[in-house]
């Protein structure tokens, strides 16, 4: 099995790096996801990379070279935003909406930054580590006349 090459880039270089990779033959964006490292005991990062709470992980695939590359971007807690890949890879539209929905990371310039799997009025972002399972009552909508 081919092991993917892992690249760590900063938020500022993120878009240019991906666009560079795209011109080098990485035609397909396979996956956009994120990890909340709030309670993680510590991970190995290369020198020069400051660990932040969130990490956006993007998987690119080159069909010609049969190669994968994985991009990891640190996103701080105080400003959870990052540029969208939509204008490079339209496929990232739904994937980025999912990350926004479940982690609360906003993607700049995304055409339709709304929740995708949870209802519009849901509070909180469930895949964050400080979102406790079972601590929040299930938000069913009230029925007419009830109460």
């Amino acid at each position: 099995m081919n092991e993917a090459e892992v690249l760590h880039v900063s938020r500022a270089e993120y878009l240019s790096t991906v666009s560079d990779l795209k011109s080098r033959g990485f035609a397909m964006c396979v996956d956009v996801t994120a990890v909340d490292y709030l309670t993680h005991p510590g991970r190995k990062l290369p020198e020069g990379i400051t660990a932040e709470r969130y990490e956006v992980v993007v998987g690119l695939l080159s069909l010609e070279e049969r190669r994968r590359v994985r991009i990891r971007v640190q996103v701080p807690d105080e400003d959870p935003t990052i540029d969208t890949l939509f204008y490079l890879y339209p496929t990232s539209e739904a994937l980025e909406r999912e990350v926004y929905d479940l982690f609360g990371i906003t993607f700049n310039n995304h055409p339709d930054m709304t929740r995708i799997v949870l209802p519009q009025e849901w509070e909180g972002h469930p895949l964050r580590k400080d979102y406790q399972v079972g601590a929040v009552p299930v938000q069913f909508k009230a029925v007419n006349g009830a109460e």
Partner: peptide
Amino acid sequence: DLSFETSEGDQ
């Protein structure tokens, strides 16, 4: 009310 009950809002 009815449209709220079934609505997914901006989605």
